Simulated assay, not measured.
Amino acid sequence: MAYRIGTRGSALATTQTQWVADAMTTADTEFEQVIIKTKGDVTTGSLANLGGTGVFATALRQAVIDGEVDLAVHSLKDLPAKQPEQLRIAAIPERADYRDALCAAEGMTLETLPKGAKIGTGSPRRIAQLLALRPDLEIVDIRGNVHTRLARVKGYEHHHDNAPSAAGSPKGDLDAVVLACAGIDRLGLDWAITQRIDPELMLPAPGQGALAVEVSADKAPDASLAAALAHHDQPAARLEATAERALLATLEAGCASPIGALATYTDGRLRLDAVVAAMDGTKTIRREATTALPVEAITDATLAAAYQLGVKVATMMIDDGADLLPPGPARGNR
């Protein structure tokens, strides 16, 4: 049977969606991509001022609710922490590289960038952590697809002039940009990465590197689709996402500062590291906790334990003053 799978129209979104479709295609299932335009795709301006997390997801989600598509593929970090009652995340496939990527001129790293280097990013989370590491950096707010942002790096357009960029966009005016490793890898542009930033230096956005396949909560998928979704719901990725999103939901209840989080599940233990930072990087609160969680399959009990780990770490941070840090722009934690 053929199913309609909703996606944004960017090269990265369609690539990710095709990867999910190919993985779930069987003798009984095939998928047709349906392009859905979102507010984040058609509106210009700062990502944070557009509403931050959720700006890329709303139209896709509405297409599922309205029955325009049977399922939708999101970058998990694009989904707000509060899950709508009409929808459920039916699968979180195996997670890609969750780290942030520095793409810099002349192979530079965070340590070797010159004083006052111009770094492009539209993410308050990245801005806050960059300034905590290197307060001398000049941060430039940028948007656009991956190729457009990479074209801002000095030398990129000369050595890789076959890569498209938006008409009228500046080229070669920055020393570096910071993007997600997962997206760059999925597009086959890993040559552009000069440093995969250690999470000890910069924690990613909650859900970074993971994809979420969302379906209607009111209409159960048929047997073929349900089986395909269940097969591609990876237990470790599901537990990690649950802890990270629980932390995000708990912190967002009383904290508007940029948030980074990374849960890792190995050898029967789930560890969660998190940071909340002032936008200017002058203060950060970072905490971690671990819980034993031997699991062969996802159950309500294991999900509850992962969720409680997120709540625990968030509560520790609030107790340490996370809710008193100066706020960042509208939930712009990406």
Rank of each mutant, 00 (worst) to 15 (best):
N49R: 07
T43C: 13
T58Y: 13
F56H: 15
T58I: 11
L47S: 09
T58D: 15
V64L: 00
G51I: 06
A59F: 07
A59H: 07
N49V: 04
L47A: 07
V55S: 08
A57Q: 03
V69R: 04
A59E: 06
T53S: 01
A48C: 15
F56I: 03
I65R: 09
R61L: 14
Q62A: 05
I65V: 10
T53C: 01
A57G: 05
V64P: 05
G51S: 10
L50W: 12
L60N: 09
T38I: 02
F56S: 10
A59V: 09
F56M: 08
V64N: 02
K39Q: 11
N49Q: 08
G51A: 07
A63S: 11
K39P: 15
T58M: 13
Q62M: 06
G67R: 04
E68T: 15
G52Q: 12
V64G: 02
G52N: 15
D41P: 15
T38H: 02
R61K: 12
G51E: 04
K39L: 08
N49E: 10
T38M: 01
T58A: 13
G54L: 00
D41I: 10
L47P: 10
A48V: 09
N49Y: 08
D41E: 14
T44V: 10
T58S: 15
S46N: 12
Q62D: 06
T58W: 11
D41V: 08
A59N: 06
G67K: 05
I65A: 05
